[in-house]
Structures are given as structure tokens and as C-alpha cells.
Amino acid sequence: MTNDSFEQCRQYLRDAPLNFRDRHPDKYAAALGLLKKEAVRSQKQDDAKMYWCFEQILIVQNAFIKAFFQLKDKQYYDAWCTLEKVEIGLHSLLRHHVDADEEYHLFYIEKHTSQFQSLYPYRVFMSPALLVHEKLCSICQQPISIRNPCGHRVGEIYDGEMCGRMISKADILEISMVENPVQKYSVPFLKDPKTNETIDQYNYALVRYLVERLESPFHEWRVEWTKIRHPHSRFLDVGRNQPCPCESGKKYKDCCLRESGVMRPHCLFSFSVAPPEHLNFVEYPT
């Protein structure tokens, strides 16, 4: 393994917006793994840490690209989970690697991961509370002692691996419904009582609308939330004396029915690359 092959890995990561359709990450993961192994063998800890960072960049980029194609395939929950992996990977990585020149598109990925997540309809999550009796250090496998710690610090890199904690004995105390979970994957779904099959009850219209108009995960886009008046023709099922659909708390007849339309949230997308021509149409009558 030579410096040339490392430079090839770096170039591959720089070129993610060009090679995202035809990635061969295993080849580069193997190359970086070999470089790291050699650095560990030579006790070059700084080099081993650097190769770990590039492994993480590869993982983050791959996950982001994978999430994009999952969204394209309408696998919305799977994409949600993959985006969470991007978030976790970035959290681990950015503590050790600052991509100041945006050489590997990490800021772009971080920003757009958050934007994708903001379009999801998930608002409430399941959250278990654990009573942890024993944790092990992922580096030395020793049980964690509060008074006699093993010395390995969580999040640091040792021999090219990040130190973490592995829960080895725990009880689940309760499961709560929360709005801001640590684990975003814990989305509650309905089940069909007859077949016991999972039902995805969520409306993914926003994220679907966006992704249909993107041809690349690296085509920049922005989302802006505002409010506009929507035509009354969309609220024909709301009676005059019922609560106004704008959620003001007033009756419809005393609120937006007096106006040109109902004031509702409006999502405005901006694209750096124009969406395909055939998708440029007005979806609703105005």
C-alpha cells in the first residue's frame, strides 16, 4: 500500500458528486483498512487516527448517497434510519476532522441531512429508559469502574478505533413517548390487527415532492417555511361554524372565511439545478 493509493482514496472522496451513481466503496474501505493496520503495527497512532477519519468520511458519504436512493425508491423509513447513521457518523468524525475547505462535502452532507429530516412527518417517538448495571469499554473490553477507570476516553481514537461503551447488563424501566429522542429510528407505526403487518400511516408528500425533483444527492436545495392563503375550495368539508383550518381557535366564519383564503403553512423549495421540465407544473388549483 502506497501514498498513491491513499491519494486515490482521497480523490475518490473529493469526487463523490461525480461518482455517486457508481460507487465501489468496498475497494476503498479495504485500502484504508490496510493503511490503518500498517500504521497500528508501526505504532503510528496519529496516522492510524487519520485513516480512521477517512474511513468515517467514506461511511458518511456512502450513507448519505444510500439515503438519497432510498428516498427515490420511496423507502422513507429506511432512508430516515440511514440519515440517522449519517448524523451519528458525522458526530463521531467532526470531533477529530475539520473539513474546513469542504474538500469532502461534509458540511453539505450535514446541512442537507438535517434538511431532509425536517421534511419528515414524524413528530413523536418511542424512548426506552434503561437502568444500566454494567458497561464495557469497547477498546479493552473491561467493565467500567467509576473509581478505577480503564483510562480509555469515549470518542477518542485508539489503535485506529473509536472508544465507546457497550452496555452488557441493563433493565428496561419504561418506554416513553417523546418529541426529541436520542434514537431517531424509534418511530411508532400502526399494525394491522388482522394480519399483524406494519402499516406506515405517515404522509411523506413533502419529502416525495422534493426528491422527485432532485437528480443528485449533491444538487443543493433549500427549504423555507412561510404562510400563505390557500383557496377555500380545499376546505369545502369545513363548516362555517367549525374551527378555522388555520388553527387560530376562532370559527371559520369569523376568521379566514372573510379572507381570500385560509392562512396555512407553506413550504418553499429552492433548487440549485432546475428540476426536470415535466415536473414543473402547479399541483393545486389556485
Partner: peptide, 18 residues
């Protein structure tokens, strides 16, 4: 320091992003 014996140390993990 911490007000517990080593053998009695237990952690509570509340999975809220706080």
C-alpha cells in the same frame, strides 16, 4: 468525587436528546 460505592454505581439512560 462521587457519592457512591464503585459496586453500587448504576446509570440511568433516558433516551431524550437533552
Amino acid at each position: 468525587d462521587i457519592c457512591i460505592e464503585d459496586k453500587d454505581y448504576r446509570e440511568l439512560t433516558l433516551h431524550v436528546d437533552l
